[in-house]
Design a protein around this nucleic acid. Structure first.
Length: 585
DNA sequence: AATTCCCGCCACGGG
DNA sequence: CCCGTGGCGGGAATT
């Protein structure tokens, strides 16, 4: 039955417009997908059907799960023929089909050769599309070009390693900061009708970038898998590949690993050519990002989410680790976190692991990851981080949790009852925090639960080791965010991840310990322990649009002596000082 | 109207 | 010149 529709649909849809207008025969109609009408739709066809059927009609929410038996036929018959929808031809689905043909962890001994022609034929798509997929897969080193028309399949074998490297590179490029600034500017743009100081910000960015002339990123390669075809680094092209890598980096460096396309696009553009015909360039970039996102999605590396924003919810993507990777990281952090549904990868663990992989790379031929110095640098970063994390009252790390949409919000509001936790964050695990900490956070007067999602305080758990105050993606939605003293803002919705809602955390093994960290956000001019910290706190302040302005101006005035204004320090302090609960198990 | 993103023209570079 | 690649943007489908 699906095959029928398939062949029919195109005609119906196209006839009206295309043929008559302008392009004449040229336009969309073309390429009779139906030509191959026979539809050798073999294996994955069910899957495809399932998916295609699912999305078009949202009204039938049950579908997927209940699909099997009863509920199905009803809708099926109802809207049977319209399921040809665009989605069936989506890159994501195509990618899915493609991936289905190869094992995640191929046996290197076998022939993992991929022939584009074959694939294109078998999947019944134009070659062009295959290139799109191959490009992003290649950017993750899941495949590598072995020859003209040929690729070698690596699957997820090298994924962890690749991600580690990409993360390093991303950090080196200070994407995190850049994103922060972009976000901030976007916010300002919306609330500022008097766009003026904007230039300053831009300048800042430029400075950061310009530090070394901030050379354009080349395709980041892996030690082992280098350049098969002599072409790999041939200047031109690889655009999509590079873009894909950068995109991924963005996720890896930002804390709630959530990235919105506009921010991503801005950054990706900014790097290439300094400001140019934005509008179009931007649109094109976004299109590309969608392409990439779609394959990343079918790889289950990211998933679509929404970030709360004064202008309503804005779509974005969130990085999601896979259980497989968890396995790789087991050892240390280990036991603390039993495998959870999506397998949240503990950042610290991942980081360490990255380092490990990075440094112990076996036959380290020569890393094509540019900058040999990178390694060293990375190492030090790693160490620093470690130090910071274990430091008693480390606001710094928290910053990380602050450095993006979500946390930002928290920042401005954040203040949950502040419980001065013994800075026992030191490597002394469990012993420390557990139960002796009052588990009734919200209670305070200011307690304002977020959205429709009462947070089970019992959830509050802590990271035994003094590791980072980190909010696992999975949990973040559950974190109670409270409005700070400033009552003006009104309840703020925090970004919610529906999926995590479903999987009630309570169902999981109860947290073993609770840790509360109180962190203070110094003003941006403040010279916190290290630059990073400063930057962060800064970002934290900008966090939420509403509060931002006020905060900013305040900070600003403080910054400039001239503005004698001298606002009440205590007030300021109160505003800036927030306590955030961090949940980790 | 805005967002998502499919389609395929056509340029580019290697053989 | 041919062909594999893949940048790029129109505009259709979806939301």
């Amino acid at each position: 039955c699906p095959s029928y529709q398939r062949s029919l649909r195109p005609n119906i849809a196209l006839t009206p417009l295309d043929n008559q207008i302008t392009m004449g025969p040229l336009a969309t109609p073309k390429k009779g997908r139906e030509v191959g009408s026979v539809d050798p739709w073999t294996p994955t066809s069910n899957l495809k059907m399932l998916i295609s059927a699912a999305s078009p009609e949202i009204r039938n929410r049950e579908k997927e799960l209940c699909m099997d038996n009863d509920g199905r036929d009803s809708l099926e018959s109802t809207q049977s023929e319209k399921m040809i929808s665009r989605k069936e031809k989506s890159l994501g689905l195509l990618c899915h089909k493609f991936l289905a043909r190869y094992p995640d962890y191929p046996n290197p001994a076998l022939n993992n050769d991929i022939c584009l022609d074959d694939v294109a034929t078998e999947l019944n798509v134009e070659r062009r599309r295959i290139y799109d997929i191959m490009n992003v897969l290649e950017s993750l080193h899941m495949v590598s070009r072995s020859a003209k028309n040929r690729y070698t399949w690596h699957g997820r074998t090298k994924l962890a390693e690749t991600l580690a490297i990409l993360k390093q590179v991303g950090e080196e490029h200070r994407y995190s900061q850049q994103m922060q600034q972009i976000r901030q500017r976007l916010v300002e743009k919306e609330f500022d009708f008097d766009g003026e100081e904007k230039e300053n910000e831009v300048a800042v960015v430029d400075l950061e970038n310009g530090e070394h002339g901030q050379k354009e990123l080349f395709f980041v390669e892996l030690p082992g898998v280098e350049f098969k075809a002599a072409s790999v680094n041939s200047r031109k092209d690889k655009s999509l590949r590079v873009m894909s890598q950068k995109f991924v980096m963005l996720f890896l460096v930002s804390n709630p690993r959530v990235v919105s396309l506009d921010v991503a696009a801005k950054i990706l553009i900014g790097e290439d050519q300094a400001a140019d015909q934005d509008k179009n360039k931007f649109k094109t970039k976004v299109r590309r990002l969608y392409d990439i996102a779609n394959v990343l999605r079918s790889l289950k590396l990211i998933e679509k989410v929404h970030v709360a924003e004064e202008r309503g919810r804005k779509p974005a993507f969130e990085w999601v680790e896979l259980p497989e990777n968890l396995a790789l990281n087991s050892e240390n952090t280990s036991t603390a976190c039993p495998p959870r549904k999506k397998g949240v990868l503990e950042p610290r663990a991942s980081a360490d692991n990255c380092a490990k992989n990075l440094f112990s790379s076996p036959g380290t031929k020569r890393s094509f990851t540019r900058h040999p110095s990178l390694i060293k640098l990375a190492k030090s970063i790693q160490d620093d981080r470690r130090k910071i994390n274990s430091a008693p009252s480390s606001p710094v790390k928290s910053d990380s949790s602050v450095n993006s949409d979500f946390p930002n919000k928290m920042a401005q509001l954040a203040a949950i009852c502040k419980i001065e936790l013994d800075q026992e964050s030191l490597p002394t695990p469990t012993s420390v925090e557990p139960s002796h900490i009052p588990l009734q956070p919200p209670t305070q007067e200011q307690a304002v639960n977020t959205t429709a999602n009462p947070i089970p305080h019992a959830l509050l758990a802590a990271q035994p080791s003094g590791s980072v105050a980190y909010i696992p993606a999975q949990c973040s939605p559950l974190i109670p965010v409270l409005l700070p003293q400033q009552r003006g803002s009104g309840p703020y919705a925090v970004y919610l991840n529906p999926s995590s809602l479903r999987s009630n955390p309570l169902a999981r093994p109860q947290p073993t310990s609770l840790a509360v960290r109180s962190m203070t956000f110094e003003d941006k001019t403040g010279q916190s322990p290290n630059g990073q910290s400063a930057a962060k706190s800064h970002t934290a302040a900008d966090a939420s649009p509403l509060g931002v302005k006020r905060l900013r101006s305040e900070l600003a005035s403080e910054g400039s002596p001239s503005k004698a204004k001298r606002s009440d320090p205590t007030f300021k302090v109160r505003k800036l000082k927030c306590a955030i609960y961090v949940i980790i198990w």
